[in-house]
Amino acid sequence: MLFDPLITFLLTLPPAVSTGCGVIGFCLYLTNYTLVTFRIISSQGITFFALNIFGAMMVLVSLAQNFNLGAMLIQVFWICLGFVAIAIRLRAKALFAADQINL
């Protein structure tokens, strides 16, 4: 299967590394929402969604050894939603740039 080597790698990580990845993901989530709260970044910007994606990925790594279906589904949802949101914003930028060239 396509993901077998990745799954095998994640399952063989030392527990401390797996837990550390989960803590890093937690820190990324907290950092992201703190930056939005203090209006340092916008919740509509690509940075917001990129931080959410990386945070969710790190939490997913930690779930490989301490699996929880609900937590895994939440992380996969955040990753998918983040990629869709980034694609929408990049497409809008490209269309705006094309409109500016055609003026």
Rank of each mutant, 00 (worst) to 15 (best):
F3D: 15
D4G: 08
P5V: 01
P5R: 01
L6C: 03
I7M: 12
I7K: 11
L10P: 00
T12K: 09
T12Y: 08
L13A: 01
L13Y: 02
P14A: 02
P15E: 11
P15T: 06
V17D: 04
V17S: 03
G20C: 02
C21A: 09
C21K: 04
G22N: 01
I24V: 11
G25N: 01
C27A: 11
L28E: 02
Y29D: 11
Y29M: 08
L30Q: 12
T31M: 09
N32D: 09
Y33M: 08
T34C: 15
T34N: 15
L35H: 04
V36C: 02
R39M: 04
I40N: 13
S42G: 04
S42E: 06
S42R: 05
S42M: 02
Q44W: 08
G45V: 01
G45H: 03
I46K: 02
F48P: 07
F49L: 08
A50M: 15
A50C: 14
A50F: 14
A50Q: 14
L51Y: 02
L51C: 04
N52D: 05
F54H: 09
A56I: 02
M57F: 07
M58N: 15
V59I: 10
L60D: 00
S62P: 13
Q65E: 05
N66I: 09
N68M: 03
A71Y: 06
A71R: 07
A71S: 14
M72R: 07
I74H: 03
V76I: 10
F77H: 13
I79Y: 01
I79M: 02
C80K: 05
C80P: 05
C80Y: 07
L81I: 11
L81D: 10
F83M: 08
F83P: 07
V84A: 11
I86R: 00
I86P: 00
I86H: 00
A87Q: 10
I88V: 13
I88D: 09
R89S: 03
R89Y: 05
R89I: 05
L90N: 08
L90A: 03
L90K: 09
R91K: 10
A92C: 05
A94G: 03
L95N: 14
L95D: 13
F96D: 14
F96W: 09
A97I: 12
A97E: 15
D99P: 07
D99N: 13
Q100A: 10
I101A: 12
I101G: 03
N102W: 11
N102S: 14
L103A: 15
L103T: 13
